[in-house]
Amino acid sequence: MISLLRIDDRLIHAQVVVGWGRILCPDRIVVADNETAACELDRNLFTMAVPPEIKVSILTLKEAVGRIHGGVFDREKVILLVKDPRAVLKIMDLGLEVHEVNVGGLHYCQGRTKVIEGLYLDDEAREALRELVKRGVTLEARALPGLKPVILNSMVV
């Protein structure tokens, strides 16, 4: 069961493990990102970042959707993390049904402009978010569960 689908360019970090973890009490954190799945250093780093009581899977987008459809995570509470809005479109194209996405963190780098605290978008991200809105997905922006969610839908179209 997916308790939270989150876009966060840092993937696993303290806000996810501690901030969301203490509210959602996940059994597993799944990182769905092709680049990370292919990088041994990143796989080790993210596995190290999670306390032993929470399981970690670092998968390609295709593997992640395959396992979700295969029922592998049915009896677990799962936080599913992707790096950017485009990845959400890809997992939808692979057949995953998505109604709501937590836009948790897209941080500053050159070419991105600030939307709200902790959320900086470039044209590519805006385009992908617009497409998600078209597909009926609710974009709920907040870094942490205790914060008031900002619905981005009308802000990106």
Partner: peptide, 16 residues
């Protein structure tokens, strides 16, 4: 500041 946080993870990347 925090073992396993993003500052920690990115420091490992930087020192690699």
């Amino acid at each position: 500041d925090y073992f396993g946080g993003s500052m920690c993870i990115n420091s490992v990347r930087a020192m690699e």
